[in-house]
Write a protein that binds this DNA or RNA. Structure first.
Lengths: 338, 338
DNA sequence: CTGAAAGCGCTAACAT
DNA sequence: ATGTTAGCGCTTTCAG
């Protein structure tokens, strides 16, 4: 098995006619090195195309200059934004970001986390598939590196979290629909087992019950087909809804597509308000009102929190999750004027 | 400086009362180990929560089980799809994927590539900001690890490429517009310095000149504002265009938004055909016809090609780029019926 | 200002 | 079947 041979520090030393220590000094800032020697060494480095081996440094005890990010999917725009923001922070700290995806599958997630540890990343962020997963919790408990939860907490584990205020966001949304005068507001959840969706359902409940309106939660929508089923059923009821609150991106889009296909007048006949903003929400007709999440801030904060704990391990992690606020973007589908 | 202490193989060996070799054997498949010993070692591993240190393995000479991907942006859906596909391939090969973004900036790109090498990735894929960049070429030439170009070639470097047939895709698009009967077809490029855009312009030229139609290439569109400028100017001409060919995703979307804002009837007054499909292209009204690129295939193939070269270094890289076909998706904005 | 040498955690001869 | 040992490339005392 032929190995890829990169030039080594020792080879540089030999070529420059100095000891390895000197070369090491040069690549680490060049302090306490005679200017003449410095120059010779730099030339040798240049000539050989030498680049320090991070694996050796890591083994020696330095930081790996690598952090991880475990998320459901990279194609999901929300997480893509988080990832991009986290990567920027990593770069500022001269580090690499490794992104691993889980499709919200606990098994894939556990594997991802283990791979990260084997690679001795300095720490990682994770959006756990299941906030209450026992084996994940156990794993994280005995882990020797800092971990930060993103978007969803890991309960009962020493893991600070950066999340959005999902409950309040859903309250905001529901309240807005109520203020518009809608009275039969149905909530379409999508995968209801996720922590975030759970919280949002609670927020919807809060406001609906406070207003003494009927609380209807439908978790049957998972794709275009099921969306059409659900909406047809809803519309053919004796007392059909006058507004829909969709709790996640894909649900909102599928719902919109079905309403368009069925020729339902939005918002006149049926209003729509979605959770999570998406690229063409303002370009569709009607434009789609949404609750916008601070995706970039979440990714950035999570990464910053991670590096903070990395750089000063003494820092005590905030026990309460860092909760970021969401905001309502009023477009047309809820009944607002452009 | 207190270090994060992971348990080591030696500690496992001591706890189990065996030598390090035995433990090494166990974690590498457990061949030639007495069943009783095997069990003891496994228990020790379990008890300590031991996980092999990949940095040590890499230093020892094993593969790093890590590959890189250097792309302009992770938020761009095209590259996000590539990345997701590449990651799946990496996972199949029990490897990690490190994604680095460049914003199409040559300096950022060079840094990204160097970081990857320092981390001793086994190889990487890159969508070069500039296919003709001299320093990148020089760097790749002396590199000791396999590299695969993605979406855009690196010319004059020993780097196999997986690209789409951009020229033919643009031909397809232009031809389609011509067949619809449009005669004044304007091409909106967006950043015209990119290799892919270049090729697409060539394709447009091919067909336009073959049909003896006027060839108009406008590279002034880079955001919503400039799009509005450009389109207003185009429409107020004595002989305004009857069709627009937009050469990249963001240009298509900005153009669509401007046409919608200006109340231009699409396709009756002005047809639109875009290069690169996007999520809600079929949901907008009118739905937007596009040339679809095989994004997932490209990411997958590039990664597979990389691993192939990784696993059997003897393999000679294909000198000609692997060129994948694009296809026309007929929706309404070009004048096709739904 | 510079070099020699130990050792990070692991694997792979080579012994036993 | 299992232990001993020499390094992989680097940083870092400790001497000179």
């Amino acid at each position: 098995m032929k190995k890829t041979r990169h030039p080594t520090l020792r080879e540089v030393a030999e070529l420059a006619g100095v000891g390895t220590t000197t070369v090491s000094r040069v690549i680490n800032g060049g302090q306490r090195v005679d200017p003449a020697t410095l120059k010779r060494v730099q030339q040798a480095i240049e000539e050989l195309g030498y680049m320090p081996n991070q694996a050796a440094r890591t083994l020696k005890g330095d930081r790996a200059r690598t952090i991880g990010l475990v998320i459901p999917s990279i194609a999901d725009p929300f997480f893509a934004s988080c990832a991009e923001a986290a990567q920027a922070v990593a770069r500022d700290h001269d580090s690499l970001l490794i992104v691993l995806t889980t499709q919200n599958d606990a098994k894939a997630e556990m594997e991802a986390v283990q791979v990260l540890v084997r690679h001795r990343v300095d720490g990682f962020m994770i959006a756990p598939a299941d906030s209450e997963d026992v084996s994940l919790r156990a794993f994280l408990r005995r882990l020797m590196i800092p971990v930060v939860a993103l978007d969803r907490p890991v309960i009962d584990a020493p893991v600070p979290a950066v999340v959005a205020d999902n409950r309040e966001g859903a309250r905001l949304a529901t309240r807005h629909l109520i203020e518009h005068g809608y009275r039969r507001i149905v909530c379409l959840t999508g995968e209801a087992q996720l922590y975030t969706i759970h919280e949002r359902i609670r927020g919807y409940r809060d406001e609906i019950t406070a207003a003494q309106l009927p609380c209807v939660v439908d978790d049957s929508v998972s794709d275009l087909i099921s969306a059409e089923h659900a909406i047809r059923a809803l519309l053919s009821q004796p007392n059909p809804p006058d507004a829909l609150l969709t709790l996640k991106n894909s649900t909102t889009i599928h719902t919109f597509e079905v309403l368009q296909k069925l020729g339902v007048a939005v918002p006149e006949k049926l209003a729509l308000l979605g959770y999570d903003d998406f690229e063409l929400a303002g370009t569709l007709r009607p434009s789609v009102s949404v609750i916008q999440q601070p995706d970039v801030d979440m990714g950035r904060l999570a990464a910053e929190l991670l590096f903070q704990r990395l750089l000063s391990p003494a820092t005590i992690a905030p026990l309460q999750p860092v909760q970021l606020q969401t905001r309502l973007i009023r477009r047309n589908s809820c009944g607002c004027e452009a």
